[in-house]
Design a protein around this nucleic acid. Sequence first.
DNA 1: CAGAACCGTGTAGCTTCTGT
DNA 2: ACAGAAGCTACACGGTTCTG
Length: 377
Amino acid sequence: MISTIYFNFITKDRLLAFLGKDDDKKLKKHDLINEITTLLCDNEILYKKFFNTFKKELAVFPTELEKILSCTTTERKRWTEEGKLSVVEYRQFKKYGKVLSHPVYNRWDIQLLSPDTIERWRAEHQKSVSDSRKTAAKKALRTKTKHDNLRQSFAQEWKEILVSWYCKGSPELAATFELAYWTVWISRWAKENNLKSRRAIKYTTEYQEKEQICYTLKNKSVKLLSKTPFAKLSFYMPDSPDKIYISFCDKHFEDFKDFRNNLGFNKMEYYDNNKKYINKCNKCIVDIDKNYYSLYYLEVSSETLSDITFSFHTPFPIGNEFWPPPKSLPAIEHYENDGIFRFGRPVLDEEKIVYREKDVLKRFNNAITKFLLYYQG
DNA sequence: CAGAACCGTGTAGCTTCTGT
DNA sequence: ACAGAAGCTACACGGTTCTG
């Protein structure tokens, strides 16, 4: 027995054509359906022909197919790819500004699939998964060896760099550069964890904690570095250095909405144009965080090793705790690296092999211990 | 002998966007 | 407003080998 739901998708004209009664327009669709269901009831050939004629109308959509076969989306996609599921056609839809398509399946062929077949497919797939994992393990081993070698040769290079620093400069200079070097990497891991925490679903707090640890170490280090004879501290103030929180009162909020609708103003633009009134209004809340976006700029360099310069940017609210007020420092008008690297960059994938987080932390701690020995001893 | 390091695969949960 | 399509990505997990 054919479910009557299917007929909803088939037009009356198509049903008439199926019965060879094209001209019999007066027949009600309801009666047509009854006639066809009875006809199909005991006629296997006609029954099959019905499904073939209306395969597009009766096509199975992805979600329905997943229910019928009780399989996952991943399984459906895989079986479609492998040509195991009979596809009637691909239908298009728009998304991401692109035209994408999805398959619809042949209802007749799908209902012929037995649970045994499905189980066989699953077993076959499991076999191939386990095979490819064996190959993967071999590949993983080769990659691991390669990476281990890279780390080893870096350790060698690093040793040579250190030797040259200690030979050419004073122990104080070498210790300062060593700490500065690893502070750069600590700072990059801080940024990396910051980005990860913002993307993370489950480990948000873990990444935030790591970010904090790295930034704390960085701040501790730049403070120490700034006291050395190789440090130059200056100050950078952007065009709008203050962070401004605004909460309009009801009246000004209405006024702002007018400006937004008519002139396309955003909150700040509206505030800039109406500062006098907003500041005078005692129901509006305006909170100004002075110099929030300003940065202390620390440069570590020496005549002795003139080809190396380290630079660090520290937000005003942090540097303000231990450095002199901005007015007493030389100002930088603007500096290079104005793009995404302006506030430090994350660790690049290829760098994560040699500069793993745990290695960087270890080397940083070594460097800071050594640094303190030279400066306090 | 547990754990680290690595790669491949599956999946949950999110986004984007259209047709109804 | 909402269902439902694929895309995207972080994460879980499994297998193999080496290491401390």
